[in-house]
Design a protein around this nucleic acid. Structure first.
Lengths: 168, 168
DNA sequence: GTTTGAAGTGTTATATCATAACAATTCAAA
DNA sequence: TTTGAATTGTTATGATATAACACTTCAAAC
């Protein structure tokens, strides 16, 4: 069982800017390697998604881009999102219709998420045991797995103690 | 590891009407037990969802209901869907924005799905091992699990052989 | 350095999914 | 039968996403 990589860093006492910088650097390298162009709007979209501590909706992102002088029509943002998704630089959280920076874009992986119902923070985790079990389970049915959407919701540790405190 | 309960029955040589009847009968019993009212529109919505072999979109369902003289405004269908979801009689497939009859509404369970990218059929499966592992994994992080969205996409056995045949 | 063609972007319009708010009706318990 | 909660009707709007076609950019081929 591997450890969780926290996707959200609020309160963890470190400089989130480092994460953004690191994610952007990784993105640049990956795009060059794959002959993809990380254009201005794509790059800025990725930064903005990373700057948000929570999954960002397409129209929230569009508003931020528009503020900075980018074209403010929906296709702009959806094209950027499509690119970033295809490049594995972000994930879509299906149950929230929102988008999240991926902290390990350089490693092939699935996005497994723990989503807090209260603070809406999301942790991405990697869990090879479950992944292997799901592949095996699907194969048993003659099913060839392509993608996995694993989104778990509930209460994070911080919000649980907050609730407990309120009740005390 | 438990066996898969096929949610879609096309080609499996049995009478799908039996499944619908059984699901409806279960629904009636559950509603009575819980003091809930399975009204005309709710009942018919559930039947229509079951009659579809694939997850049904809210507006597809709305169109079918409208054909039969039910009110054709969106709130009608979303209210029915909300009721059926809350009662555990249907599931929402988040990655498709579509709704699916639940074959074991009488047993508390999570909806785990195998979704074919090609024919869009969906199989629901129950997998206690994974469920337990996910709970444990979440608990390890101090996270209290409430709901799970597990949606696996790929190619079902039938579509795999179809593709193989086309290439032969 | 010009051509050229593919990739990317701008723009308008529209499709698709979902809910807010308030009025009217139904239905069972008091 | 009243009465109040649940349900449904109705209008409007919000939220998410894509189609279609024109225009621009940019790098490789010439």
């Amino acid at each position: 069982m591997k450890h969780i990589e926290p996707q959200d860093h609020q309160g963890s006492g470190h400089n989130h800017n480092d994460c953004i910088d690191s994610a952007l650097a990784t993105a640049e390298i990956l795009c060059v390697q794959q002959g993809q162009r990380l254009t201005k709007v794509r790059r800025r979209a990725l930064e903005l998604i990373w700057e948000s501590h929570r999954p960002l909706g397409a129209y929230q992102l569009l508003a931020k881009l528009a503020e900075e002088g980018f074209n403010s029509a929906p296709p702009t943002v959806y094209r950027a999102l499509d690119f970033l998704l295809a490049a594995g630089l972000i994930h879509k959280v299906e149950s929230m219709n929102a988008y999240l920076g991926c902290a390990h874009a350089d490693k092939a992986h699935k996005g497994y998420f723990l989503i807090c119902d209260d603070c809406h923070n999301v942790m991405e985790f990697d869990y090879q045991d479950i992944h292997a079990a799901l592949i095996a389970k699907a194969a048993q049915q003659g099913f060839e797995l392509r993608a996995e959407t694993i989104e778990l919701t509930g209460l994070c540790a911080k919000c649980r103690s907050k609730v407990a405190g309120a009740n005390a």
